[in-house]
Write a protein that binds this DNA or RNA. Structure first.
Lengths: 307, 307
DNA sequence: TGAAATTCATAACCTTTGATTATCACCTGA
DNA sequence: TCAGGTGATAATCAAAGGTTATGAATTTCA
C-alpha cells in the first residue's frame, strides 16, 4: 500500500479541476504540497497520471485507469466515514443466542418490539441448548443469550428478566385420574407419574426432574422428544405427562387439540428466564435496551397465559 | 477521512489474530505502535472495536460492523495496488478517434491485429469528422486520432501511416463515355464531370474537389451523401461519378453490383492517412505500437485492392 | 517583440505523525 | 504466591507532510 487517502483525494481533485492551484484550494492545502503528493503517487504507480500543458491538465490513459480504481477506494472510505458519523444513531449487528424452549414463543414478540421501538438493531439469532450457547458466548460468536438461570457459566453476567412458571400438561383423562383437587396439586404428587421429557441436554429436562423429585434412571421417564411442540402432541394423546412452561402454554394449548393444563398450587414451580453476556462486555447500552424489550414481551406472554 | 490504510490493516490483523502481539508481528511493527493506532482508530470511529480480555480479543458488535466496511476499503486498495504492479504489462484504456471514410474499412483489421499481437489495449473508438476529432483531442477526450494528413491542428504530432490512392468510381456506362484510354486518365479530365460527394465537413469532399480542379459552387457537384457506402450505390446506378479511396474500394466493389473502378495514371492522386496525438503527450509507447498495427493493416488492405 | 500573467516544480524549513525501546498494570494458571 | 502473558503508556527519534519563497516554462497581450 504505497499511497495514502490524501494522495487519492488530491488526484481526484486535480482530475476534476484540471489545474493544480484550484485543486489545492478545494483540498485546503497549498499548491506545492499537492504537487509533491501527486508526483509521489505517480512514482508509486510507476508512470505519469497527467499530461501537463501550460493551461490545462489532461488525464493520461494510465491516469484514467488509475482514477477508476482510486474512485472505488474513495467510495468505500466515504462509506466507512459515513458509518462512523452515523453509528451512534443505533445501527448495530448483534448475535443473540436463545434456547429452543423459549425461542418460538418469545422471538416473534421480541423482534416486533425491536422494530417498533427506537432500538434499531440488526439481530442475528442462533438457537441452541444452554451448553453450546455458553461456548459460543465465550469465543465471541454471540454477544448475549436468552436462557434459564443460573447459566452455570464462568465470567458471565446474568440479568433476570421474568419468572416462567411450570404447568402440568396432559390429556383430560390423565389429569382427572391424577387428583381430585386440582387447586392442591403439588409437584411431589408426580413422584410416580409417567413423564414425557425433552431429550437430554435441554435444561428444561433437568428442571422437570428436579421439580418432580425424579431422576433420569427412573423407569417412569421417557426422554426423546425434540421440541415442546412434539411433547404437547404426545401428552395430549395420553402418552404420559409433562411440565409445560407458561411461556409456551397458551400457544401449545391453542395449537394442540386435547391438550389440557393444570396450574400447581403455591409455591408454583418455575424457572427464571434471563439475558446473559460476558462480564468483559462493557459499555453495552444495547444489552440493557434488549433486556427491557425481552422482559416486556415475556411478561406480556405469560400474563396472557394466566388469564 | 480520519483513518489511514495502516490503521485498517492493523485492525484486520488484530481481528484475525485475536492478539495484539501476534498481529504486530504479522504487520512487521512493534506491539505498542499497533496498540496506539488501534486506539486512535477507536477514537476516530467513536467507540470500542474490541472487547479486551486477558487472553483473547473479541470484536464488539460495533467492531464487527466497522470491519465489514474496512474490508471493502482494503479490498479496493489492494485492487489498485495490484493494478499498479501489473500495469506495465499493458492494460491501458485508450480513446481513439477515426474519420468515417476510414473506420469501416480499417477497424476490423486493426482490432483483430491488436487482439492477436502482444499489445493488450482496451481501445474505445470514437468516429467523427476531422474538425470534431481535433477538438476532442485538444480537450483530452481522445488520446489519438486516425485521419487524413495534414490535420490542420495546432500542437499536433502527425505520424504518416500509408498512402491511400483515389480511384474513380462510377457505372460502366459512365466510365466508358468518359475516355477511350483508361490508362491515360487524369484528374483534370473530370473538370466538367458530374460528381457525387459526401456532405460538407468530410475532408474527402475537399480533397476530391481539389484533385478534380472543381469548387463547391460548380453546378456539377452534388454533396449530400452521408457515407461512402451510399455514394457507391448512387454512382453505380449512374448518378454521377465519385473519387473512391483505395482503402474502401475493394469492399465497396464487392458489396455494390454494377460499381466500376478506374485507376488514374501516374502520378495517382492520393491522401495520406496518419495517426495524430497532442505534442504534449510524451512517453506514449502505446502510440508507436498502435501506429505499427494500423500501418500494417492499412498497407494490407490497399495492396489487396491493387491486385 | 517584450513584458506580464499563469502555472507547475523545487528548495528550505517547520510541524505532525508514526515508529521504537523501556516500562507499567493487570490477569491467569501452576 | 509467583512467573508468565499481554495490552497500555511514556520518552525519544525518524519519517512524512505541510508552509512560504522562488525558479522555470509557456502563453497572452499591447
Amino acid at each position: 500500500m504505497n499511497f495514502t487517502f490524501r494522495q487519492l483525494q488530491y488526484f481526484r481533485a486535480v482530475a476534476d479541476q484540471r489545474n493544480f492551484g484550484r485543486a489545492a484550494q478545494v483540498c485546503h492545502v497549498s499548491q506545492p504540497a499537492l504537487s509533491v503528493q501527486i508526483k509521489a503517487l505517480e512514482e508509486s504507480i510507476g508512470g505519469p497520471l497527467f499530461e501537463r500543458q501550460a493551461r490545462d491538465i489532461l488525464l493520461t490513459p494510465l491516469g484514467r485507469d488509475v482514477l477508476d480504481h482510486a474512485d472505488q477506494v474513495l467510495k468505500a472510505a466515504e462509506q466507512l466515514d459515513r458509518f462512523a458519523s452515523d453509528h451512534s444513531g443505533g445501527q448495530r449487528s448483534l448475535s443473540i443466542g436463545i434456547i429452543p424452549t423459549v425461542a418460538p414463543y418469545l422471538l416473534p414478540g421480541v423482534l416486533a418490539g425491536l422494530r417498533a421501538g427506537d432500538v434499531s438493531l440488526r439481530v442475528q439469532i442462533r438457537e441452541a441448548r444452554t451448553k453450546q450457547l455458553l461456548s459460543m458466548l465465550h469465543v465471541g460468536e454471540i454477544d448475549a443469550a436468552v436462557l434459564a438461570l443460573p447459566s452455570g457459566g464462568t465470567s458471565i453476567h446474568e440479568e433476570p428478566l421474568f419468572e416462567d412458571h411450570f404447568l402440568l400438561a396432559g390429556s383430560q383423562t390423565r389429569l382427572d385420574r391424577l387428583t381430585a383437587d386440582p387447586d392442591a396439586l403439588r409437584p411431589v404428587d408426580l413422584r410416580a407419574a409417567h413423564l414425557m421429557l425433552l431429550e437430554d441436554g435441554h435444561c428444561l429436562t433437568d428442571q422437570a426432574l428436579e421439580v418432580c423429585g425424579q431422576n433420569r434412571t427412573s423407569g417412569q421417564i421417557n426422554m426423546g422428544a425434540s421440541s415442546l411442540a412434539t411433547l404437547s402432541r404426545l401428552v395430549a394423546e395420553g402418552f404420559g405427562l409433562t411440565l409445560m412452561p407458561e411461556l409456551a402454554a397458551r400457544a401449545e394449548r391453542d395449537a394442540v387439540p386435547g391438550l389440557c393444563l393444570l396450574r400447581f398450587g403455591e409455591p408454583q414451580p418455575s424457572r427464571t428466564i434471563g439475558l446473559v453476556r460476558r462480564t468483559s462486555t462493557e459499555g453495552a447500552g444495547w444489552f440493557d435496551r434488549l433486556a427491557e424489550v425481552i422482559r416486556e414481551v415475556g411478561a406480556r406472554v405469560v400474563s396472557q397465559t394466566r388469564t
